[in-house]
Amino acid sequence: MNAVVVENVGKIFTVARRGTVTALEDISLVVAPGEFVSLIGPSGCGKSTLLRLIADLDQPTTGAVTVFGKTARQARIDQNYGIAFQQAGLLAWRTVAQNIELPLELHKVAKPVRRARVAELLELVGLTEFADRYPEQLSGGMQQRVAIARSLAESPGLLLMDEPFGALDEMTRERMQNELVRIRKETGAAVVFVTHSIPEAVFLSDRVVVMSPRPGRIRDIVAVDLGGTDVRDENLREATGFFATVSAVREALHGTPVDAVRGVENR
């Protein structure tokens, strides 16, 4: 069963005194189980809106969103997805461990089970020593890792991430990308990932969805061809297949051919 099916979805916002904004128009997208799909496109093209529709934080005006064969609403209630945003959004009065524990606590998971799971997740994001720290005592990158651990707490089959590394410096960002690749391999979750960075999208994804604004539409979907390997590591960042795909995405984004190997556009 597919992780996400978006069928002919449109979203129109009604803004007081300024009429309506068509955020999305006729969007159709299928995300297979375990597949990593990135959404990329200029600001305001509806990436966050699409993600929010999948998460049932908003409802589509037309069309339907299905998550693991259920309505988005049911999938939210059943905790079929984990979500992470650009801001870590940790609760300041909870320690790192307690923040990760929050969804488990809310869903009445037994305490010993919770303990074990939190320990596992801390290990996964490399923050075991920081379990009892408070968010304010962590760097931005560490906070973001806590947020990712929290989104993984209930072992969801689907991860929704809206520019989770957007606020990080380049070095931390690359490290986090490597970690995400590893985490995803270990958990086997499907991921819908919003980003502004072409290399980031290509490095992480099986497919890159390129969107265009006003109204928000899917312009193109670029499959990432790693040129034979399926190992995403530091070497991939230097591989020719990587650059070729980066160019392909950039062309789709700008709508014009760009010189093939022109180095990396960072954001």
């Binding site: 801001q87 009065w93 968010p135 304010e136 906070q143 973001q144 990080l168």
Partner: peptide, 9 residues
């Protein structure tokens, strides 16, 4: 502990 504020990352 409830008087902590989260620093913007």
């Amino acid at each position: 502990k409830y008087r902590r504020t989260e620093v913007a990352s």
